[in-house]
Amino acid sequence: MRQQMSLRASDLVVTAMGFLGVPYRRGGNSVETGFDCSGFVRAMYEQTVGLVLPRRAAEQAQATETISRDELKPGDLVFFNTMRHAFSHVGIYVGDGKFIHSPRSGAQVRVEDMRTAYWHTRFNGARRVTTARGAGDGWQAAQ
């Protein structure tokens, strides 16, 4: 089971990397329309893992398992306070202190280092999507 989850996380990161350069679009949730941060995370999990996460970053944080920063593994979610409230931005951890996300209007899906001053000071926490949680926690299996 653990090896299967590790393979899914690797697939998730590889899939997400395939979307580098897709433009940001508020409310966007597809390659055709562009992505906002939570739409990007939601689309990657649905396409790769087969789980439909909640739509908003704060809801994604609430529906996933809290982990410490030193427990981060590729495929985990990382949250930031970028709009003066907790969990206002989300990305997918790719390893080596870096994450992939759809940052803001005028930008594109890209990889950034969480250790830079901007992201380090805004870090809200890390979360893991586990198969032990389900629809009652805000997500469901893709149909």
Rank of each mutant, 00 (worst) to 15 (best):
L12K: 01
V13C: 09
T15A: 13
F19A: 10
F19N: 04
G21I: 08
V22L: 05
R26W: 15
R26V: 12
R26T: 11
T33S: 15
T33P: 00
T33N: 12
G34C: 10
F35M: 01
F35V: 00
C37G: 06
V41P: 00
R42F: 01
R42D: 03
A43V: 07
E46D: 13
E46Q: 14
G50Y: 04
L53V: 09
L53G: 06
R56P: 00
A57T: 06
Q60Y: 02
Q60K: 12
A61H: 08
A63I: 05
T64N: 09
T66S: 09
D70A: 04
E71G: 05
E71Q: 15
L72Q: 05
L72N: 03
L77S: 06
L77T: 10
V78T: 09
F79H: 04
N81H: 07
T82H: 06
R84M: 12
R84H: 14
S88Y: 01
S88I: 04
H89W: 00
V90S: 02
G91R: 08
I92V: 14
V94G: 11
V94W: 01
V94E: 01
G95Y: 05
D96Q: 15
I100L: 09
S102M: 07
S102I: 08
S105D: 08
S105I: 13
A107M: 15
Q108F: 14
V109M: 06
R110P: 00
V111P: 01
E112M: 11
T116Y: 02
A117D: 07
Y118A: 02
W119N: 02
W119F: 14
R122A: 06
R122Q: 03
F123Q: 03
N124V: 01
G125K: 10
G125L: 08
R128C: 11
T130W: 10
T131W: 10
T131C: 03
R133K: 14
R133D: 07
